[in-house]
C-alpha cells in the first residue's frame, strides 16, 4: 500500500457517523478473547527447549497421522458429502428437511457422544461392526481407518452444509440454461454447477479438514490413544500436557502454525475476501 492511499484512508470519515460504543466495545472484547490465549501461549513457550521438543519421534508420528487422516477424511467428506449437498440444494424430494436435520445432528452432538455412538455401530460387537468383522476380518476401532471414520463423522455435517450453501448461491437458472442446450443433469453438474460453486466447495473442504485436524473427543473415545495408529496431535498434546508442560506448548505451536498456514494459503487462493 502506498503512503498516499494510507493517508487517504486515515482521513476518511464514515458519512453515517462513528460506530456506537455499545457495539464497538463488545466487538473489541470478542477479538481480544479470541487472540489473547494464543498470544499467551506463544509467550509461555520456552524457545530454548523448543528444537528438542519439535524433533521428538512421537510428534512426527502424530503429526503425520493427523495430517494424513484429516486429508483422507476430507476426501471421504467430499466424495460422500458433495452428492448429499447437491441433493439438498437442487432436488425437491419428500423428507428433504428431515435429511438436512439428520445430517446436521452430529454437528451439535458432543464429540464424546459421537465416539460412543460410533462404538455401538462400528465396534467389534457393533451393529455394523460385528457382521463386518465376520465377513472381512476388519474392524475400525484402534486403527488409522477408525480415526478417519471418526473424523468423517464429525466433519461431514460442516462440509455438507457449507457446500449446500455454495451450491445454492450458484444460480439454478444456469442449470436451466444448460438443460435447454441439451445437457444431462450429470453434464450440468460437472460442467456448470461445480465450476460455479468451486470456491465455496473448497472453502467447505478446508472447514472440514480443519475440523478433522482438531478432532479429539470422538477419536479418543472410538479409537483410544495408540502411538503410530490412533494417536493424533490433539490426543498427543492432551497426554503430554499431563507430564511435560513445555512439550505440550511446543506441540500446540505446531498445530497453530499448520492451521494458520492452511487458512492463509487457501484464503489468498480461493476465498477472495481480503
Amino acid at each position: 500500500m502506498s503512503p498516499r492511499t494510507q493517508s487517504q484512508r486515515s482521513h476518511r470519515t464514515d458519512p453515517l457517523g462513528r460506530p456506537p460504543l455499545l457495539l464497538l466495545v463488545p466487538a473489541v472484547l470478542a477479538v481480544a478473547l479470541l487472540v489473547v490465549p494464543l498470544l499467551a501461549m506463544l509467550a509461555a513457550i520456552d524457545w530454548r527447549t523448543l528444537p528438542t521438543s519439535l524433533s521428538s519421534a512421537p510428534l512426527r508420528t502424530a503429526l503425520w497421522l493427523s495430517l494424513s487422516t484429516s486429508t483422507a477424511a476430507m476426501l471421504v467428506c467430499l466424495v460422500l458429502g458433495l452428492p448429499v449437498a447437491w441433493l439438498l440444494a437442487r432436488v425437491d424430494f419428500r423428507g428433504r428437511s428431515l435429511v438436512r436435520v439428520l445430517v446436521t445432528v452430529p454437528m451439535v452432538l458432543p464429540p464424546v457422544v459421537a465416539g460412543v455412538a460410533l462404538r455401538t455401530a462400528f465396534g467389534r460387537t457393533g451393529l455394523v461392526g460385528e457382521p463386518l468383522l465376520a465377513a472381512t476380518g476388519f474392524a475400525f476401532p484402534f486403527t488409522a481407518w477408525g480415526v478417519v471414520l471418526a473424523h468423517t463423522f464429525v466433519s461431514m455435517p460442516f462440509v455438507v452444509l457449507a457446500i449446500e450453501g455454495a451450491l445454492r448461491s450458484a444460480d439454478p437458472d444456469y442449470d436451466a440454461a444448460a438443460a435447454t442446450l441439451g445437457a444431462t443433469r450429470w453434464t450440468t453438474f460437472r460442467r456448470v454447477t461445480i465450476p460455479l460453486a468451486l470456491p465455496g466447495i473448497v472453502a467447505g473442504m478446508v472447514l472440514g479438514w480443519a475440523r478433522s485436524l482438531g478432532e479429539f473427543g470422538a477419536t479418543i473415545t472410538f479409537n483410544g490413544n495408540y502411538p503410530g495408529t490412533t494417536q493424533t496431535m490433539p490426543t498427543l498434546i492432551y497426554v503430554t500436557r499431563q507430564s511435560d508442560q513445555d512439550a505440550a506448548l511446543a506441540l500446540s505451536l505446531v498445530m497453530l502454525v499448520v492451521s494458520v498456514a492452511v487458512l492463509l494459503l487457501l484464503r489468498d487462493r480461493w476465498l477472495g475476501t481480503p
Binding site: 444460480d171 437458472d173 444456469y174 436451466a176 440454461a177 444448460a178 438443460a179 435447454t180 442446450l181 441439451g182 445437457a183 444431462t184 460442467r191 456448470v192 465450476p195 460455479l196
Partner: peptide, 28 residues
C-alpha cells in the same frame, strides 16, 4: 427440456461465467 429442439435466450443472458464465449456457444 433437454430433448426439445428449442433454443432459449434468457432474460439477462445467463452465459456461463466460467466459460469463454466460444465454449458457451459450443456447450450445446
Amino acid at each position: 427440456a433437454r430433448d426439445r429442439e428449442v433454443g432459449l435466450v434468457f432474460q439477462g443472458q445467463l452465459l456461463f461465467p466460467h466459460l469463454s464465449a466460444l465454449d458457451n456457444v459450443a456447450f450445446g
